[in-house]
Write a protein that binds this DNA or RNA. Structure first.
Length: 359
DNA sequence: TAAGCGTGGAG
DNA sequence: TCTCCAAGCTT
């Protein structure tokens, strides 16, 4: 007797009523799965609704421009997800006659779709009998079978996919995968799992050994560096200068206030800013006043960003030396330019206070 | 293979 | 304030 009947019975009664379940289509399933990568359901829901209002189908997405796609995605993070989803939609519409692949192998060829997402879409949208393993399922399986290896190690990962496949109920893969995820999100949580209310507690080896909170075994985590960063709000005639970041890498394709990281050789924050503006724009600026200190944690490092109101020195014309593009933007138009969180905070403060030319 | 990639919520 | 970590993928 496996845990699966109890699991499916529980899911039948307790499945969450989510927007992409309430009204289901392959496209909606796809978008939801991409948004849900490394992101919690409650965070995703409002983004999903806005997305569907603006890009109701594959054709609408494929014909959109990347900036409007990034603008909708702003705040959700991992922006390559948005760029890849956009690219993939163009591929499906232009090269596949608008028909999404229905198998994991076909889906995985599209940018942004890896092993988990391919299995999730194939099982949920196309009723294929394939097992998926995500963070929730990884935790549930590691506890059910008391997996001793680190779950994210190559060997642990291989065993988890084997466990998921071994227990797959034929003809019910979509419900099975989603039930495992809902169980992980609602009952079998990372901290203090609700074992008394768990429908499969009787099958749980970690629970029977009292080690459920020690599963899954984690890999050691690296320390994150903390950088000091400066940024310039360069003001001129009611406008500010924005730079568009390179298309790949951190915040790819998003706009920002130019600046950069404090180096050992810099005499101070203002010297750092003058150096960075020289490197990035080839101009000299005069620094008028501080404009806030912003702390933020990215995936791999933390920053404290010091912003300054600045003005170009006489006769200086900014050149685009390191960005995709630079552009003078009216303060009231800043909301139309997709930005990461810190730059959005600076932009919002500019909008709120109005711009006062500093010289 | 391991590092890079955002942000927000929970404890 | 800090740590963990959340429906992972790409290079």
């Amino acid at each position: 007797m496996t845990f699966v009947p109890n699991l499916l019975d529980w899911y039948d009664k307790n499945a969450r009523d989510l927007p992409w379940r309430f009204e289901q289509s392959p496209y909606r399933t796809w978008v939801s799965e991409i948004m849900l990568q490394q992101t919690q359901v409650d965070t995703v829901i409002p983004y999903f609704e806005r997305w569907m209002a603006q890009f109701p189908d594959l054709q609408a997405l494929a014909s959109a421009d990347e900036q409007s796609v990034l603008a909708i995605w702003e705040g959700l993070g991992y922006y390559s997800r948005a760029r890849n989803l956009h690219r993939a939609a163009k591929i499906v519409v232009n090269e596949m006659d608008g028909q999404m692949p229905q198998t994991p192998e076909g889906l995985e060829k599209l940018p942004g779709i890896g092993p988990y997402t391919a299995a999730a879409i194939a099982s949920i949208a196309f009723e294929q009998d394939v097992a998926a393993v995500d963070g929730n399922i990884r935790r549930v399986l590691a506890r059910l079978f008391d997996l001793r290896e680190p779950a994210r190690s190559p060997q642990g990962e291989r065993k988890l996919w084997e466990m998921a496949e071994a227990n797959l109920p034929a003809g019910h893969a979509g419900a099975y995968n989603q039930a495992m995820m809902d169980l992980g999100a609602m009952i079998c949580t990372p901290k203090t799992p609700d074992c008394p209310n768990c429908p499969v507690a009787a099958h749980c080896r970690a629970r029977s050994l009292g080690v459920q909170e020690e599963r899954p075994v984690k890999m050691a985590r690296k320390k994150v560096p903390h950088l000091t960063v400066t940024a310039a709000v360069i003001c001129r005639d009611g406008q500010v200068l924005l730079a568009k970041r390179p298309s790949r890498g951190l915040l790819g394709g998003m706009w920002e206030f130019p600046g950069g990281t404090l180096e050992d050789q810099d005499a101070g924050l203002e010297a750092c800013l003058r150096r960075e503006i020289g490197e990035e724009l080839g101009v000299e600026v005069s620094i008028c006043s501080p404009f806030g200190e912003y702390r933020h944690a990215y995936t791999h490092y933390k920053i404290t960003l010091h912003a300054f109101l600045t003005a170009l020195s006489d006769g200086q014309i900014p050149q685009n030396l390191e960005s995709q593009e630079i552009r003078w933007v009216d303060v009231l138009d800043l909301s139309a330019y997709p930005m990461g969180k810190v730059d959005r905070q600076i932009a919002d403060r500019l909008v709120g206070e109005g711009i006062h030319d500093c010289l």
